[in-house]
Every structure is written in C-alpha cells, then in structure tokens.
Design a protein around this nucleic acid. Sequence first.
DNA 1: CGCTAGGTTGAGGTACGTCAAGCTAAGTGG
DNA 2: CCACTTAGCTTGACGTACCTCAACCTAGCG
Lengths: 242, 242
Amino acid sequence: MSNVISSLLSVLRRRDKLSDEEEAALRGLSWTTSQFAPEEEIIAEGSRPSQSCLLVDGFAGRCLWMNDGSRGLAALHISGDFIDLHGLYLKTMDHSVVALTECAVAFVPHGELRELMARFPHLSRMLSLLLAIDAAIERQWIVGLSRRQAEDRIAHFICETYQRLQIVGCASHHRFSFPLTQATLADLVGISLVHANRTVQHLRSSGLIEWNGGDFSILKPDELARIADFDPVYLSLPSEPR
Amino acid sequence: MSNVISSLLSVLRRRDKLSDEEEAALRGLSWTTSQFAPEEEIIAEGSRPSQSCLLVDGFAGRCLWMNDGSRGLAALHISGDFIDLHGLYLKTMDHSVVALTECAVAFVPHGELRELMARFPHLSRMLSLLLAIDAAIERQWIVGLSRRQAEDRIAHFICETYQRLQIVGCASHHRFSFPLTQATLADLVGISLVHANRTVQHLRSSGLIEWNGGDFSILKPDELARIADFDPVYLSLPSEPR
DNA sequence: CGCTAGGTTGAGGTACGTCAAGCTAAGTGG
DNA sequence: CCACTTAGCTTGACGTACCTCAACCTAGCG
C-alpha cells in the first residue's frame, strides 16, 4: 500500500518540499484501491461522493455529456492526479470521471482529508495548488480551443502531457506510453476523429512524432514546442515555498 | 470599507452558512482598494503577487496572450469574485487579469489570508470551493468550445453570466447591466467579432434577447436555456455544509 | 474463418474566419 | 454651430478549416 501515493508525492515534491510528518500523514490515510476497465465510470455525474480519489495508474478523463449524446472530455488525468478533490468541495458532481484505459484508483474518505487539511495548513495549500494547476491547464485548453487550430492544439496537448508524465516518472527521453485511441484524442482536443487522424498523420509525416501501438515518441521536441507555442510556466514546475 | 466584501459574502453564503466569527475574520483583514480603467492590467502575467485580490465592482477577464499577438480570454469575472486566489498558490502568474470595464478591486496580503485559512478550516474549504467552481465553469467552456456552435455558446454564456450576477444582486427579472463590447464578447466565447455580431443579431431577431447600450434583457429565458443546454448544477448553487 | 476495434481515405458540405467597406452616435476642437 | 475624429456596430463577398457520411483496409482474436 505504501507505493500507492508515490506518484502523488512526486507531484507535490516537484512543487515544494514536504516534511516527513506531512508525508507520514498522507501515507497514514486509510486508502483503499480498486481497478477500473476502459470506459468504466470512476465517478458518476450527479453523484455525491463521500470519498476522494487518486489516480494511481492509467489514464482517465473528465467527461461532460452533451444533449446530442456526444461526450466532451474537459481534462486528461494521469498517474498521481488527485482526481476528485473537486467532489470534496462541490458535493454534487457536475461531470463524470471515466477510465480511458485500465485504471488503478485509490480512495480516501472526505472526512479524513478534511481533518488532515485542518491539521496541516501547508499540506492543505499544496492540495489547493493541485486544484489551481488543474484550472491553469483548463485555461490553456480554453484559449487553445478558441485560437489554435487542430495541429497546433494537438502539438500543445502532446507537449503538456509529456511534461506531466515526466514528473511522475512515466516519461523520459521524449518517449512515453500512450495507449489511447485516436477517437479519444479527438475528444480531448475537440475535433472530429477523421480530422484528428489526418492531423496526426501530418505530424508523423513531418517527422515530428512517432505513435505506434501505444508508444509515443517526440522526435523533434523543439520544433513541436515551437508550433504549439508551448510555455510550461502554467504547470508551476519550480519547487518553492507555497 | 465594510461593504467591500459584501458581494463576496453573498457568493459564499449562497453555498453554505458562514458563522459570525468567520464573517468578522474576513472583514478584519486589511483590505486596500483601488480603481482600474478598462483595458488596464489588474495582475500581470509573469508577476509574483504578494496580495490576493477581490473584484468589488465591474467586469474583468483572465487573459492569455498568443504568439500571434491576439489575446484569449479564459474567464469572465464579476463583482464578488476572488480573482486572485490562484496567485496565492501558483506564485508566478501564468496569465494576466485585465479590467474589461471600470473596476474596483480590493487587495489583501497573502500572509493574512494564509493565517486566516489556518485558523478557520471551514473558511479555507469555502475559498477552495471558489477555486473549484471556477474550474467547473472552465470545464463548461471547454466542452462548449469543442462541441457547441456559436449561437448555443453565446446563449450558454448569457445563462451562466445571468445566474452569477443574480447571486451578488447585480441581476434580477432577467435583466442586468452588461457594458461590454461585442468584440469582448467575441473574445470570451472564442469567435470572430463579425460572427459574434451576426449571432447576436440572430438572437435578437429571434426575440430571445435585447442588448442596447449596456443593458441586457433575456426575453425568453426558457428557450434560451433550451438552446444553450444550460444546467446550472456546475455552479454549486445549493446551500449545504461544505 | 469471420468478427471487431481501430485506423485510413475520399467527396462534399458548412460554420466559421478574414478582408474591406460603410454606418451611427458620441465626443472634440474651432 | 459645424467639421472632424473615433469607437462600436453592421453588412457583403469570399476563402478555409473543419465536419459528416461512407467506404475500405488492417491486425488481432475467438
């Protein structure tokens, strides 16, 4: 059970020091884990969760259903993401969280989390920082959707995802496992499947990326970041007192 | 000075009870206010604010600049919005906040806010709730941008803005003051000025809205909400223990 | 051997964007 | 009081990035 929160610790420690006490307190929570299959709902829209959950392994998405039956993905979550800190505050879920691949998820009761945050103000701020970073990523997506076109948007998405995966040790040397379908990618960046396919092909034929059977490689990181206009400040990567 | 935080109190009390102690503690912070002219920067991208700020009056936007020089607005803020709670956690601003109209803004030092939150865990959760609501709004914008077309998106934006204004007493009977230009609206909903103009005209000629010289009226609220597919759960309107 | 999930390709339509012009009302200076 | 300017709004013409529909292809699998 001790390794369950190791990627969460990486996420936090990337942004600030954590005391031994704080680490122990986090570890001391009564985590319970479970597995989810692709397309399975981890948290349902309209539900009132009594637990928060942490994504331990896999990829998940925040999902809003439109009245025409199509789904919109508003965020991608990876190992180490405290997916449902939101439910702790919002009470009633305005959206659902779905597993996009096989997922391992760890749950912790809201009550324990509230106590922890009252006892450790700094830890409380660190968890709020996670909310703030999520919001910063969402802002990037908003301007990307309104001002960037498909190729730049996908390029930006790749740069962002690589950076995040790197923090939790799931990516290095511009390579990472990315077992999502093109249809899911299309949903994430807000374009049609057909157009996503053509755009990915163009990125491939330009020699910028490789993506075969779940293995993703960024071949020209600098050029990809350039066309994406990618500047990682919004990910709050420096470690400093928070 | 006592009325400075009155709309913040409305925003919070709409979501949960606040004790007299909590209210007194909020009032007791050393707020300092200042005015900003339209287009003026309230918080600059790249800066490291030592104060958080609260929008007391006017409209402001979260602004990200693209490398082609155009600006993207990722959020609209109104009276009662704790605009820069983000800066408290993020340290370095990844975006700027600009006044879209004449704005009155109240500032409070980060240090005081941190102390307040350590002393009042419930208040701390309420402020995090504000962050979570902002994030929920951003998610709606993301799916709106990727799946709704211009008219529905503007309709959704209007429904949302009306609801938020109502909470702080700046709207009632489907009418509110909305002194923004069509160009700003276009930036907010992510379309061109020309298309925004045509879409607004269509909403007008359909008899759904009226918008003259800064006065906005929703003439057919139900129909507007229907084409917008608007469901306000994401605004966390119920008052309940948080 | 057929079935299925995922990927690829083509053809045609449309909701947008861009460019460019003109219009109106409010303000400014003489 | 009149010219002039300016910000905001409006309109038309035209281009394009994207969507939809509809195949077809491939690899893995029972």
